[in-house]
Amino acid sequence: MKEKNVNIENLFGSLKKENPFRVPENYFETFADRLTIRIKEEERTNNHRRRFIYFRPIMAIAAILVLAMLLIYVPSTKLLPSGSGNIAQNGSENSIDDSVNGIQGSLISNFSEEQLLAAFSALSDMDSKTLSSDNLADYITANYSSYEILADN
């Protein structure tokens, strides 16, 4: 037993300073270059992030404004009678496009369920991403007369 201990101590001593690990060829020669590339990449990413942080308050304000406009616009078209809605829109925004949208919006609110279903099925072959209330309104104004729309309601 004593002899074994001596052997272990010898073994322990003989291992001193020996490094059993090694590295891939040219590892230390190329390390600095690889590190420089990584630092440059990190700095580029950080610059993008910094720019985003800089624009974040502006984007937040823009989002709040859009939300506020939606909150004012949507109830005014939904809750107010269609005629007054158009007046409100035409009064505040005088562009021709907006007044057309207002007319289409009021038309859609006058459609019966059957008319809307027919319009949806007719438009189903269209790309779903492009299907909008404008498409629907276009289809109905092209295929139904004002009389038919009002008679169904």
């Binding site: 073994l11 322990f12 291992l15 020996e18 059993p20 690990f21 090694r22 891939p24």
Partner: peptide
């Protein structure tokens, strides 16, 4: 399993 370990059995045991 380290391909970059060159030690013999004694060194492995030591590690």
């Amino acid at each position: 399993s380290d391909v970059y370990f060159d030690g013999d059995d004694i060194q492995k045991k030591f590690q």
